[in-house]
Amino acid sequence: MKKAIHYINQFFAGIGGEDTADYKPEIREGAIGPALALSSMLNAEITHTVICGDNYMGSNTDEAIKEILSFLEDKEFDIFIAGPAFQAGRYGVACGNICKAVKERFNVPVLTSMNEENPGVEMFKKDMYVFKGGKSAAKLKDDVKVIASFANKILNGEKTGSADKEGFFPRGIRAQVWLESGKTGAERGVEMLIKKLNGLPFESELPIPKQDRVPVATPIADLSKAKIAIMTTGGIVPVNNPDRIQSASATRWGRYDISNVDKLESGVYKTIHAGFDPAAADADPNVIMPVDAMKTYLKEGKFGALHDYFYSTVGTGTTQAEAMRMAKEIIIKLEEDKVDAVIMTST
């Protein structure tokens, strides 16, 4: 039989309320409190229960996590479940923190449950399965049932469903599914329009998410002293594409030394971008990566220095998440070389 470990606070362990919230971490054999309800529905044995006071976890988080992880080092377990935490804010955050640490350290599935009002939801829903729970312990049985049915799917190696079907908060991950109804896009579209035209409620299949806006940077005070770097998503690379940057859906980037050239020569550089007609860029790579213009401006003293490298990747089909990761990697290099500003060219 598979094995599970459960995390609860001092209150649900029956130790006490607010007066005992400083209770230090402890591990006990077997199931305690809510785990008793859970164990009757779970296809796994709850071998241990970890208990920790909410205040202790809140004010000594690193220490508490370290102690708990040390309890788990010699234990075998297939899944880790915390809570449910209902509306209890500190308990919710504690469940999130310990689940996150356990997932990172032991790479086992971690599950918890909270009410939508619990601040832990916003903090942790992208890191783990946080199930939509009731407001108080009166909903314990229902909440535990939802967790157990999902946990059993994981334990049995079965396919799990979407957030709305399984009852967890969306983790910001969108994937395609085949509708059981078999209803086509055309049918859904026309039906949605008729509802909208008649003022009836309808549900968009793509709710527009909150926008991730980058604040505009402060201007450079003195351009004559500034070091400028140039960068492109237009796929300009040395002709042999040494970093094997993909022509679409790129996950790689490269940087190429331009300290000794006045411009990018055709035949030495080219574009590997698959989203536009490459003829003009191959004939003159500077139309995308304007090394020629930047060198001229440099000689004219329009700015202080040109960074020794240009940076390149491909933008077509490249996901926003991959783009952000690559940017973070590139920023380290730019900061090392004390670059003040970047000119980014697109296509």
Binding site: S162, A163, D164, K165, P170, R171, G172, I173, R174, A175, Q176, V177, W178, L179, G182, K183, T184, G185, A186, E187, R188, G189, E205, L206
Partner: peptide, 11 residues
């Protein structure tokens, strides 16, 4: 074009 029985769901 309208044939798709697929949609996108949150996971």
């Amino acid at each position: 074009a309208g044939w798709s029985p697929k949609t996108m769901k949150e996971f």
